[in-house]
Design a protein around this nucleic acid. Structure first.
Length: 259
DNA sequence: ACTACGTCCTGCGAGC
DNA sequence: TGCTCGCAGGACGTAG
């Protein structure tokens, strides 16, 4: 959390606010969140890659934002605590609140290298996703299937809830190692479907995640697996179980989801 | 080149 | 009631 659907929702919401806005001040309250952009710089565009938000500036710099697991972006709402960054523009103020401080803000200059994960990041989800290509990437990787999804090489932006939901939809146990092509394609299609549905619902506001106006997403109401440990599986009624896979909590149905 | 693991962090709920 | 403990979890640095 926040995963790709949450970040995409924030990007959409910020788009009309920041495009063309003139930056007046960029203030860092913690070294992890720092983008020393000069006053007067104009934001030309807002993009997203995986779970990153990229604010492009006309002169070529990019403000790179990652929200870690508890980060929030608020527009014209001053956080009461855990405020680590503020971007003042002539159109409003962008605040970053992040209780666990796993997030990051940095300024990329033209010619600078992006974080290492950008190199291995897989394709973006969407109606045009090449499911066969992503399935092949998934089949070439090794280890537990849950860990392989979280590597984000087959599809970018997968986090823990999307991985758990997709594995449940594709009826695969998180500790599955061997999968055939049919299973791989089904899993990729599940990932893509869940991401698109979650974007439609404005993401999951289960814990920290909020929209830029402080309102909540609603996809948490459609989760069939994640966060439902002990509750009945919505497919078969069997109580869902929780185990640790790749150092992460993994909720699954040991009747529906087989290795 | 690859994989695996420790690190960063605070809030909250479980258990004693 | 009040304490401690463990978990929540994405990305990155480093070790092997």
């Amino acid at each position: 959390m926040p995963e790709l659907p949450e970040i995409e929702t924030l990007r959409e919401q910020l788009s009309s606010k920041v495009k063309g806005a003139v930056i007046l001040e960029s203030i860092s309250y913690h070294r992890r969140y720092n983008a020393p952009v000069r006053s007067g710089a104009v934001i030309s565009d807002i993009k997203r890659r995986g779970k990153y938000i990229l604010l492009s500036i006309y002169t070529g710099e990019t403000i790179l934002i990652h929200l870690g697991m508890s980060g929030q972006i608020l527009w014209n709402i001053v956080p009461v605590d855990h405020m680590h960054y503020k971007l003042v523009t002539d159109n409003g103020v962008l605040y970053i609140r992040d209780p666990r401080r796993f997030g990051r803000v940095r300024l990329i200059y033209p010619g600078d290298t992006y974080p290492a994960t950008f190199k291995t990041l897989g394709p973006e989800p969407g109606l045009g996703l090449d499911t066969l290509s992503s399935a092949n990437i998934l089949m070439k990787s090794s280890g537990y299937i849950k860990a392989r999804l979280l590597e984000q090489k087959a599809v970018a932006g997968v986090g823990n809830y999307i991985a758990d939901e997709a594995l449940h939809m594709a009826k695969l146990h998180p500790k599955t190692i061997l999968i055939n092509k049919k299973q791989a394609i089904k899993l990729i299609k599940s990932v893509n479907h869940i991401m698109l549905e979650s974007i439609k619902a404005g993401g999951v506001s289960e814990r920290d995640y909020l929209h830029i106006d402080g309102s909540r997403g609603s996809y948490q109401n459609q989760l069939k697996c994640y966060g439902r440990n002990g509750l009945p599986c919505l497919s078969c009624g069997n109580p869902l179980k929780k185990i640790r896979v790749a150092s992460r909590g993994s909720t699954f149905c040991d009747v529906c989801q087989v290795i």
